[in-house]
Design a protein around this nucleic acid. Structure first.
Length: 103
DNA sequence: TGAATGACAAATT
DNA sequence: TAATTTGCCATTC
């Protein structure tokens, strides 16, 4: 990975590369960014994104295929994913084997 | 400069 | 198998 870029910039680039209709886990992104143990920081970066961002942050979910957000944000992400053709089971989880992004 | 924080993940119970 | 606890580490206060 490019060491000149800050950690959060690498996260931005990786998340931006997730294709529509696919999802990635926080752990995956952390690994692609060169810090396999920094999954938590991935969430930290996405949390501080500006409102008008173009980043497809809604395509990032946790290892259980579930959305980690809560409240209104949870509903918004759920809708955004459904709009891309991603189906969510009744318990609020996604079939990772089917929708997971494999670069 | 150092302590606290957290959109996770793996190990333990 | 599911729930709880522990470790992680870049960013924020």
């Amino acid at each position: 990975m490019d060491p000149q870029e800050s950690f959060q910039q690498r996260i931005w680039h990786i998340v931006a590369a997730i294709p529509q209709g696919k999802v990635a886990t926080y752990g995956d992104i952390a690994r692609l960014a060169g810090s396999p143990r920094a999954a938590r920081q991935v969430g930290g970066v996405l949390r501080r994104l500006p409102q008008g961002t173009q980043l497809p942050w809604h395509r990032v979910i946790n290892r259980h295929g579930a959305i980690s957000l809560q409240g209104d944000d949870l509903l918004r992400q759920r809708d955004a994913l459904a709009a891309e053709g991603i189906e969510i089971s009744d318990d609020g989880r996604i079939a990772l084997e089917q929708y997971r992004w494999r670069p």
